[in-house]
Simulated scan of single mutants.
Amino acid sequence: MRPILLAAAALIAAPVLAQAPAAPNPQIDYPGFQALTADVGPQRAERLLPFARFKAEAAKPEVLLLDARSSDAFAAGHIAGAVNLPFTDFTAESLAAVIGANPNRPILIYCNNNFRNDAAPVRMKARPLALNIQTFINLVGYGYPNVWELGEVVDFDDPAVGWVRG
């Protein structure tokens, strides 16, 4: 009897679901996102740094080491010298406040999927959804072309990483 009720409910709901789609939200541009992603892909492929070079670049005074994980995850642990701006808080204004007036400032990024530990506070994300990807795309999309990414997987317990526990 239960399958018959589910089938009847589906038949009743079908006309509602089949109605014309709502007008597109003018504040969301998926084709623009697709184009930006296609444009950024080759650049990102050339901007993946081995760990030793990443650490050397991060030590330079003009370089920003940006951690886009949540505030809670950052507080629980991060690479020494990193500045936190959660990805969910990215806006033109918040990025300018953290990055400064020079849009060409070198920005280094890392995220959960750069750590093999897969333990709090850096639980691994699904590979196609790794925060590194969205962070890189968004920084370039907001007008910051000098983005570089840690291209290796490291152990946050390795003293060379410089992990600061919260």
Rank of each mutant, 00 (worst) to 15 (best):
G32H: 02
E57N: 02
Q27Y: 14
V63C: 10
N25Y: 12
D29Y: 14
R69V: 05
D29W: 14
G41V: 05
P31A: 05
E62D: 15
E62S: 12
A68Y: 08
D72A: 15
A73V: 01
E57A: 09
G77M: 05
F51W: 10
V40M: 07
P61G: 06
Q43K: 14
K60M: 12
D39E: 14
I79V: 13
N25M: 04
A68P: 02
T37R: 09
F33S: 02
D67F: 10
Q27W: 11
A20C: 06
Y30I: 12
P21W: 14
A76C: 01
L36K: 05
A35K: 14
E62H: 14
A22N: 05
I28G: 00
A38H: 04
R53D: 12
G41M: 13
R47V: 01
L64D: 09
Q27V: 00
E57T: 02
A75L: 06
A52I: 01
A38C: 01
P61F: 07
F74S: 00
R44N: 06
P61H: 09
F54C: 00
P50V: 12
L49A: 06
A35L: 10
L49P: 03
D72Q: 15
A75I: 03
G41I: 08
A68D: 09
G32L: 03
F51S: 01
K60C: 01
L36S: 05
